[in-house]
Write a protein that binds this DNA or RNA. Structure first.
Lengths: 220, 220
DNA sequence: GAGCTGGTAGTCAAGTTTGACTAGCGAGGG
DNA sequence: CCCTCGCTAGTCAAACTTGACTACCAGCTC
């Protein structure tokens, strides 16, 4: 009965990160933070998924659920969540994986970027450099593997797909190198460096980046 | 009761494309083609999803299912599928959308690339140029929207996420321009240009790009 | 002072995706 | 001859995702 060390899930990482930064948060707060981070644009952070992840991780012991009396301002009875010790471990495991692994799904890395300041600067740098090595290794494997002996071009237009992946990997690596430079030169405030960047919305603070669009889940 | 014009689904596009190129195909053949295209690498083309899509689209009338007696070479009774007229329409609708829209999910575009030669060259070029305009529009919307009045940098490290998206959009546009050049100069064989590129495996042909890895669904 | 709008907070059923599992057959080894 | 391995072909339950829906309250309008 190990602590559910399953595969990477962006939602789980984002939700754990949001709850952790608040100390204690209910679903709607998490939902708002993820919108503040723009996560609904680059990941599948929809209300249903968020509430599902909260409940699921509470069942698995990664979060502790506090039932709150249906207090202020009506609505259904809310539940507040707090991150547990196993939850914190899982959070860092997912975060480290998001920053180092190259799986060409950009949402995972974006989530890692949004939460990287929860690590210490030195570790973040090390992970990003590991990421560069992962990209290089991926590139080598793919180009070796998909280059037929009869020379390139044997693949016809299907080869364009591979070319696109490789191009994305290369430009992704270049961008990561730029980020490494910025972080190395002191950009941003990482864990243990004093006043952290405020990455969540305080209770009642208005969201300057809220989209005008309705969420699908909103009542008319 | 419209012909199920729902949202983009990579699996549906890929499966329709594979069945259409075969004329008539059973699930395992489709599964093999998608592996031949490398789709298991850059999309969620797992066996379960493929069989589900086949059944689903047969129910919706996009495919016609022929029950085949459990004939050659044992195994469970197979079903062969043929694309219908509504299925063909849906296929081209999805294909055009995959090539023009920019939703920063690279799997959709990759699928479009793999199937673009099912269109005529002129149309493919027009769609790719439309894609370039979509990217530009997306870029304008995002940079306007997420640039605070207090100047850039107000976002802290969260701004890196946006920078990554914008960078990806720019390099994606550059790559697309290269592709447009290649296609304009006569690369590849498009619909109505004689002998088409063989994009599927014939019955019994071995797959030169099959991975040595097991699929998750394989028996031990 | 009734009704409308908008924000807060969350549920739910339907649909999709996942990875593990089943099952038949042929080839080859011992 | 029997047993295992690998290939063909597909099923299934559990998990996840989705978008529509509920419900409450406050403020405003008419």
């Amino acid at each position: 009965m190990r602590p559910t060390l399953d595969r990477m899930s962006v939602i789980r990482l984002l939700v754990l990160g949001a709850v952790r930064q608040h100390g204690r948060a209910h679903g709607y707060q998490v939902r708002n933070d993820l919108e503040y981070w723009g996560a609904h644009e680059w990941s599948n952070a929809k209300p249903g998924s968020i509430y599902h992840a909260l409940k699921q991780m509470a069942r698995q012991g990664l979060l502790h659920a506090h039932e709150i009396a249906p207090s202020t301002a009506g609505g259904p009875p809310r539940t507040e969540y707090e991150i547990t010790e196993p939850g914190t471990e899982e959070f860092f495991r997912l975060l480290r994986e998001a920053l180092t692994s190259y799986d060409q799904k950009p949402d995972v890395f974006s989530a890692g970027l949004g939460l990287m300041v929860d690590l210490e600067r030195a570790e973040a740098l090390a992970l990003l450099e590991q990421r560069l090595r992962s990209i290089e290794e991926w590139r080598r494997a793919v180009t070796e593997y998909y280059t037929p002996e009869e020379g390139p071009g044997q693949l016809g237009h299907i080869g364009e797909i591979m070319d696109l992946w490789v191009h994305s990997a290369d430009t992704g690596a270049a961008w990561t190198r730029g980020l490494v430079e910025r972080v190395r030169s002191g950009a941003y405030t990482f864990a243990g460096e004093g006043e952290p960047f405020i990455g969540v919305l305080a209770e009642g603070e208005e969201n300057p980046y809220a989209t005008g669009e309705r969420h699908p889940g909103d009542a008319r």
